[in-house]
Design a protein around this nucleic acid. Structure first.
Lengths: 236, 236
DNA sequence: TTATTGTCGATTATTGATAATCTATTGTCA
DNA sequence: TGACAATAGATTATCAATAATCGACAATAA
């Protein structure tokens, strides 16, 4: 699958971007964390320029916010941001399923393997482990839509999606989720994209709602954007 | 609707980005055109750094391609790129319509004004003028979905959408399009999001297909990516 | 001839220094 | 004491110079 075109760019600014991106996504830098150009430049034995470029790219990806002459910080997500992200994700996946269904009819062995892995993860009760099996399944469906732009959009939502998951730890009913996956694959196997799409939408919306309710309770108490709460949640 | 958060950044690199972005979108720089950092820096009386940053942002927006140590050029779009973009656009607008419908029931005066403007443009027969009235109508529907992420995604497709329009000039049946708009607004006015969404999808898909067919004919002759053909089409 | 190597000019990538701007603190005055 | 101006320190924004890399073409050797 990997060909010469996959050659990753590798100038300093790209490596910096990848490193920072990972640190943000895994919560090493929590939301609101201030990123200082020269500090990072010194840490990575480089200079200010490449770090600046990396910041700009991260900004375009929605991971950080940049204010001129003030600085760059890890983006804080409001509950609304998370809701919108899950809504967008639901839209994308529902349509991806419809587009992918024709070519998946009677040809879902790969997806079934992934669902089995998710089931195993669900039994472990570890939501981090669960997420590492669950997300690729959803992404794969988007890939199978054959539309690379939808994949790009889906990827662009990962920061919000992961934040939501990190924030929620305990409230998800993993086995109920697993049943959804089963039904989704069954629908795809029959080539019933409409149904698969609707199930996906329901599945994702459910997930977002359960966690949203939890967030509302939390917000009522701490009355704030996610940043603060996430500071704790991210640091596992 | 505009609040303090809308404060536009205005450092040099942002101004450069806006300028280049406009030049690319309007076809002053045609697809494949090479952008040289120092050349542009000199033209704008600035230095290489800000220009580099602008390039990176444009890359994130999908307007240019950057190859390390080789340079930056205006992105060339394949017919497939355009198809995917229109498919993604259809997905977004269909759903946006469904989300927006409830709050538009009996409240479509604004949209009707826009449709009237589109009608006027259709009668002029000028597709550029038509596009400047048509696109805001579609964007407005996405805005009215209340989901700012969908708006961001929709905006991200503008390069492809405009290229497609520029490439097509004569083949669009403007009055047929106008009728679609009328029916879409009617559906929204009734709060029938499902129908409005389906109409939008059909409308956009139609548009893409008509132009795609034309492109296929052209490609069969010149056998190439859009870049070359667009060189002429862009320069109006 | 053909393949390989080396050099040159052009361009990008990075660096270190400087200018511009913000924030917080300190000091002054009513 | 409290409001406000001046100042210092930190950080970003920009610049100018250098290093690294690429593409093309010429020179060389098998």
């Amino acid at each position: 699958m990997a060909n010469q075109g996959d050659m990753v760019r590798d100038c300093m600014s790209d490596r910096i971007r990848r490193l920072l991106s990972e640190r943000i996504l895994t919560g090493v830098y929590e939301p609101g964390h201030r990123l200082v150009e020269l500090k990072i430049a010194k840490e990575l034995n480089t200079s200010q320029g490449p770090v600046r470029e990396a910041f700009r790219e991260l900004e375009a990806l929605g991971l950080v916010e940049v204010e001129p002459y003030k600085g760059t910080r890890v983006r804080r997500l409001s509950e609304r941001d998370l809701q919108e992200a899950f809504e967008a994700r639901a839209v994308i996946e529902q349509y991806a399923a419809e587009l992918a269904a024709p070519r998946l009819r009677g040809n879902t062995a790969e997806l079934r393997r992934q669902v089995a892995a998710i089931y195993k993860a669900a039994n472990s009760g570890d939501i981090d482990y669960y997420a590492t099996e669950d997300l690729p399944f959803h992404r794969r469906i988007v890939e199978l839509s054959g539309n690379s732009i939808l994949v790009r959009f889906w990827d662009a939502l990962q920061f919000e999606v992961r934040t939501r998951i990190l924030l929620s730890r305990n409230k998800v009913n993993l086995h109920e989720s697993h049943q959804f996956h089963q039904r989704i694959v069954d629908a795809l196997d029959e080539g019933n994209g409409k149904l698969a799409g609707e199930l996906l939408r329901e599945h994702i919306t459910n997930f977002a709602e359960v966690l949203g309710a939890e967030a509302d309770a939390r917000d009522a108490a701490s009355k704030s954007v996610i940043g603060k709460a996430a500071v704790e949640a991210h640091l596992t």
